[in-house]
Amino acid sequence: MNILTAPIIVAVLSAILATIIVIIDGIVNNYGEVTININGKKDLKVKGGSKLLTTLSEQKIFIPSACGGRGSCGMCKVKVISDVGPILPTEAPLLSKEEISKNIRLSCQIKIKSDIKIEIPEELFSVKKYKGKIVSIKDVTHDIKEVRIELPEEIEFKAGQYAQLIIPPYDKIKESVQRAYSIASKPSEKNIVEFLIRLVPKGIATTYVHTKLKENQNIDLIGPFGDFYVRETNADMICVAGGSGMAPIKSIIYDMYEKNIKDRNIWYFFGARSLKDLFYLEELRKIEKELPNFHFIPALSEPSPEDNWKGEVGLITDVLNKYLKENQNHKEGYLCGSPGMINACVNVMTKNGIKQEEIYYDNFA
């Protein structure tokens, strides 16, 4: 009898304990209504107790976040004017000394317990959540899909910016996640956004896109975000990308081509391993013929004999370095790729006279 009743007693006691914890949590952590003051001019009356990132999202103010609020991407930074306690161990690795000195915090790690004052870029007020529909999915390489999404309302963005796809729960993934992807389409396509999504082994979002996502399916996205866009100067544009890093550069180049911008030199270096990793070659060659100031330089690091490749061979940084030594014009850098590629390109560019502050990229790592 004891053997049979023991599990029941344990279960009952566990249920009672869980109930007590919920009641105590509701009493102790009942912070009531608090005020979030934004930029000194907008007040939000909200219920206290939740993370700042989540609370702002519920008020339709979307802070960039690529990790779903887990404190790993470091993108959801805001300036906090009021005292919310010391920097947390989860924040410290993702904040520079300068950011800490300026009271920059990760909004996904701050719990709202009392009135709080924050500062965010004004452009975030125009970020929206869109309910889209997949109109096409196309393989552009063996591991990159072109995904086009139709929106019921127009989206305004600058060529080079990004949006966050909301991936629903699937298989063993129990919660929705958000991931940032650069927009590949032109800003003039106001009811369409296009993404280039490379399959990352064990990647939650990329696995979903490559194995689950279907045409005519609905999907939500938030955007636009990012400071990666063309600066209005006369400097030569040195664009470098690899793989799905093609996306924002494609948006920028197609936008400039559509606007027939002929008074600025554009050099686009695209690195790939072999011919099977190159895509949009014909389209970019067509633009090169019709836009005299645009120069497209693809390079293969490990071309196969059957590729019969006649173009540049080697790491894209070596090809870039060779060109930069030959060109002494005023130049700006526009980069998109892996953190390793970006760091290597920044190193090459700065050694060849391009100022660090004139090299632009979005870091999704």
Results as ranks from 00 to 15, higher is better:
residue 42 K to E: 14
residue 56 L to P: 01
residue 56 L to D: 02
residue 48 G to N: 06
residue 55 T to I: 05
residue 73 C to V: 10
residue 60 K to A: 13
residue 51 K to T: 01
residue 51 K to V: 01
residue 66 A to S: 13
residue 51 K to W: 03
residue 54 T to Y: 12
residue 39 N to A: 09
residue 55 T to H: 09
residue 55 T to A: 09
residue 62 F to E: 04
residue 62 F to D: 07
residue 42 K to D: 10
residue 45 K to H: 13
residue 70 R to T: 15
residue 45 K to Q: 12
residue 44 L to M: 03
residue 66 A to V: 04
residue 67 C to V: 13
residue 71 G to H: 11
residue 49 G to R: 08
residue 50 S to H: 10
residue 72 S to F: 09
residue 64 P to C: 10
residue 61 I to C: 01
residue 54 T to K: 15
residue 56 L to Q: 05
residue 51 K to E: 04
residue 64 P to D: 11
residue 70 R to W: 01
residue 57 S to H: 15
residue 46 V to K: 06
residue 54 T to S: 13
residue 43 D to S: 14
residue 65 S to W: 02
residue 74 G to L: 14
residue 42 K to L: 15
residue 61 I to P: 01
residue 46 V to E: 02
residue 57 S to V: 06
residue 45 K to G: 00
residue 56 L to G: 10
residue 56 L to N: 11
residue 67 C to G: 04
residue 57 S to L: 06
residue 67 C to K: 03
residue 44 L to W: 08
residue 41 K to T: 12
residue 50 S to Y: 09
residue 74 G to R: 12
residue 69 G to P: 02
residue 73 C to H: 09
residue 39 N to G: 03
residue 68 G to H: 11
residue 54 T to W: 14
residue 58 E to G: 07
residue 41 K to Y: 08
residue 59 Q to Y: 04
residue 38 I to M: 03
residue 54 T to G: 00
residue 59 Q to N: 14
residue 64 P to T: 15
residue 41 K to P: 00
residue 48 G to E: 03
residue 55 T to M: 09
residue 43 D to H: 13
residue 39 N to Q: 07
residue 73 C to S: 08
residue 38 I to H: 10
residue 47 K to G: 01
residue 73 C to W: 10
residue 50 S to R: 06
residue 69 G to W: 07
residue 38 I to P: 02
